[in-house]
Nucleic acid binder design. Structure first.
Length: 783
DNA sequence: CAGTGAGCGAGCTTCCGCTTGACTT
């Protein structure tokens, strides 16, 4: 049987290619890598030239055996994974694992999914590029060395289950450095002076013209003096310049720019964007969504030209091929674009429609003519020699703006621009209505959003399109970074106004610097970052990835051996790991001593404990056991004061005795509670554990006692494991640690043993909550 | 979401890049 087997990376791609190639070809997918370093072990034999130990992960076993059988039946096997370092390695692993033979194995590549591109690829097969494979192995092994040697140091020195790596640790560093930059930022104020003139407009009607003073007075006194000087001044138009300006469209989407624009325009998280894009891709509506290329296929260019011509006219069309400038880009795919550019909209969920619309517009706009504008700059001079300017912009040809305009992160810094200016002549004398001087403050740099952090990582060549979203998740999951809102600060700004020869002043209060959904480092993030930065500055260097990438490139080009690179790296890295582990310090990493507790003289300190940041009174060496408390919310380890720390030890408070047992209040994992013997009652939100009274606490205890009593509806002597209970969400059946819903219409009191067993059988044996699910439930509660 | 309220004593955790499922809640 004469048959060809083609193996690609993605099943959606396999489907499309299958249609192009016809019946002689069977097209299967490898679903990415089929083999990797062992999951749990270090898996690198350092002494033996860094020999890697690969394994086929359990979830890939079935797939691999299927590929093996099909390969055995085929006369020729075509390895068609992506044309980049990872793709080459995938082909090589396939070759090795499937035990393919050189005589009937061919390696082909294409970077657009069009019939011509694929048929052309079939015509030009090559061999597996072992240099490229070696470059991938060097990358993989270096990442494993860094991750698996650094992480255990953190477990020992900071907290278990933490992690470090070439990519994530630098991502955290970016967020930490930004935060420190903001802390160090000192806001300065100056006065923005605006003069409002009254001039005749187009149709003779009087209109306002606002012009800004070119310089900015630094102080209130200076601003006042300036307004004073304007009292008798005259104002004349000294100059008027009109010049044409062109704006060009942005290139089509890559993964990173799609994530940024979807965040700005649609409010999507990077994860959301990728999930929705994946759906569009699997439905065949867009090209591959993990790409670093801005390239469009010639077919796409031609379609854009036709669509733009038909819908808007020839003058709107302007074919462009953009070039990718991103550091380390591998360009194995096209840019992200609609597969059928003629379809301006698609069916699907609301989110899919919106994301598709964004992709369609961006693609079309990238092939449209420049926008043409006319920019007018008018200079106004006062008789005292002070210069004012006013600018106006008029669109003379909208071009690509008709379809799409890119958004920017810091909208507040953009000056408001006026559109069309009234007719103005040089030497025209203007009369002013008023002049205001408004105090303005410089703003600290904005914190990163998920998407702007991705942009920064991409700029530094760190991470790949397939990993941007996971990186953002990882640094949040590890508790290094929180996504949170930051409240603005209250500011008092002075406003001075000269009107009708009088200067008046007032003070406005304004909120400035508020930020939404920004990445903020946690205490753990700060401590881990400072620690790694101190002992492993090379790895934490923003340019570490760029440096090693350069070496990987040399391997790919056959100029260097991959083992040499690793030997050199390990030779300096591993000793610093050993040295760091050997360091014995008096204090824990990140520990801060606040002082001594006034009452006892014991040392009060803050540090990262087994369960996160905590406050400790006394030390382990003291006779008495130390006391512990959780860090209060919203206060950082770096900023907490002695008073704030001691406040946390005022709990548990014992309020008195009730029925011979003490009544106390405390804050637990699930918030404040009242305790009475073995009974715990959660405190409602409006109650404060510091101020709740004894009587209020007893009320809560009695209420809880009643709920407990009602909780038990029924139990059965035949099976003590089974009980019908009343929970927060109504009655349910509890059986051997699992809970089962009682179907609607069933009265719980009337259920008998057989009825219960039937329900349990119907809902099936439930697994106990996995640790992973527990962890997410916990973090959900925290936020 | 069906309860709970600790404090590093044992075992485990961890990297980065390819790619999609099959599970509930």
């Amino acid at each position: 049987m004469q048959k060809n087997l083609v193996i690609v990376e993605s099943p959606a791609k396999a489907k499309t290619i299958g249609k192009f190639l016809g019946d002689d070809y069977e097209v299967l997918s490898s679903y990415g890598h089929i083999r990797d370093l062992k999951k749990k072990e270090f898996s690198i034999d350092v002494k033996n030239d860094f020999a890697p130990k690969y394994e086929i992960p359990a979830e890939k076993k079935e797939l691999v055996s299927k590929l093996k059988t099909e390969a055995g039946k085929a006369s020729t096997v075509w390895l068609a994974s992506d044309e980049d370092r990872e793709g080459e390695a995938i082909s090589w692993h396939l070759y090795e694992v499937l035990k393919l033979k050189p005589e009937n194995t061919k390696r082909i590549v294409f970077h657009e999914i069009t019939k011509t591109a694929i048929l052309n690829a079939i015509q030009h097969p090559r061999k597996i590029d072992t240099n490229l494979v070696d470059a991938q192995q060097a990358r993989r092994i270096l990442d494993r060395i860094v991750g698996f040697e650094l992480s255990p140091i953190l477990w020992r020195k900071v907290k278990p289950a933490l992690s470090a790596g070439r990519v994530q640790s630098v991502a955290v560093r970016l967020v930490v450095d930004k935060e420190r930059e903001i802390q160090a930022f000192k806001s300065e104020s100056s006065y923005r002076v605006l003069a409002t003139f009254i001039v005749p407009g187009e149709n003779g009607k009087l209109v306002e013209l606002k012009a800004e003073l070119a310089r900015r007075p630094k102080t209130k006194a200076e601003a006042e003096a300036f307004l004073e000087s304007c009292k008798g001044a005259t104002f004349t138009i000294a100059d008027k310049v009109v010049k044409p300006v062109k704006r060009s469209p942005a290139p089509p989407f890559t993964t990173s720019t799609l994530q940024q624009e979807a965040a700005r325009k649609l409010g999507f998280t990077v994860n959301r964007t990728m999930m929705v894009a994946q759906n569009l891709y699997e439905s065949g509506l867009i090209t591959y969504m993990r790409t670093d290329s801005v390239d469009l296929s010639s077919l796409a260019l031609a379609t854009c030209k036709r669509v733009i011509g038909e819908q808007m006219g020839e003058q709107y069309s302007h074919s462009r091929q953009f070039t990718t400038k991103t550091l380390g880009a591998q360009e194995a795919h096209e840019a992200i674009r609609p597969t059928n550019i003629g379809d301006a909209s698609v069916s699907g969920s609301a989110q899919e429609k919106r994301l598709y619309d964004l992709i369609w517009k961006r693609t079309i706009a990238s092939q449209m003519a420049d926008a043409e504008l006319e920019k007018t700059t008018v200079t106004i001079m006062s008789s005292h020699g002070d210069k004012f300017t006013v600018t106006g912009e008029v669109i003379t040809f909208d071009g690509f703006i008709r379809v799409y305009r890119e958004s920017y992160d810091d909208d507040n810094t953009q000056e408001e621009e006026s559109g069309l200016l009234p007719p103005l002549e040089k030497n025209q004398i203007l009369s002013h209505q008023n002049i205001t001087a408004t105090e303005r403050f410089t703003q600290h740099p904005p914190r990163y959003t998920e998407a702007s952090l991705v942009r920064k990582l991409e700029e530094l060549g760190i991470g790949r399109p397939s990993t941007y979203a996971p990186i953002i998740s990882t640094i949040q999951q590890r508790g290094y970074v929180d996504k949170d809102n930051k409240e603005g600060e209250k500011r008092e700004a002075t406003v001075l106004k000269l009107e009708k020869g009088e200067i008046t002043g007032k003070v406005n209060t304004e909120m400035v610097g508020a930020e939404k959904s920004k990445l903020i480092p946690t205490d753990i993030g700060l401590v881990v970052n400072d620690f790694l930065n101190q002992y492993f500055p090379d790895i934490l260097d923003y340019h570490f990835t760029a440096h090693v990438e350069k070496e990987f490139d040399e391997v790919a080009e056959g100029q260097k051996k991959w083992t040499e690179i690793l030997k050199k790296f390990y030779g300096t890295f591993h000793p610093s790991v050993e040295a760091t582990l050997a360091i014995k310090t008096e204090h824990k990493v990140g520990e801060r001593i606040l002082g001594n507790e006034p009452a006892t003289g014991k040392v009060v300190s803050v540090k990262i404990g087994r369960f996160g940041p905590m406050i400790q009174v006394g030390s382990a060496n003291d006779e008495e056991k130390p006391r512990f408390a959780q860090m209060p919310k919203g206060i950082s380890m770096e900023a907490i004061t002695m008073e704030e720390a001691l406040e946390m030890f005022k709990l548990p408070r014992t309020l008195g005795e009730y029925e011979d047992k003490p009544v106390s209040v405390n804050i637990g994992r699930f918030g404040p509670y009242v305790r009475h013997g073995s009974l715990y009652a959660s405190m409602p939100k409006e109650k404060d554990p510091m101020t709740i009274t004894f009587d209020e606490s007893v009320e809560l205890i009695l209420a809880k006692r009643e709920a407990e009593a009602k909780r038990h509806i029924k139990s059965f002597d035949e099976d003590p494991d089974l009980a019908i209970l009343n929970g927060r969400f109504g009655p349910y059946i509890s059986y051997k640690g699992s809970n089962y819903k009682i179907p609607k219409g069933t009265v719980p009191e009337e259920l008998d043993l057989a009825g219960c067993q039937k329900i349990i059988a119907e809902q099936g044996e439930k697994k106990k909550a996995s640790p992973r699910r527990k962890a997410t439930a916990k973090s959900a509660k925290k936020s």
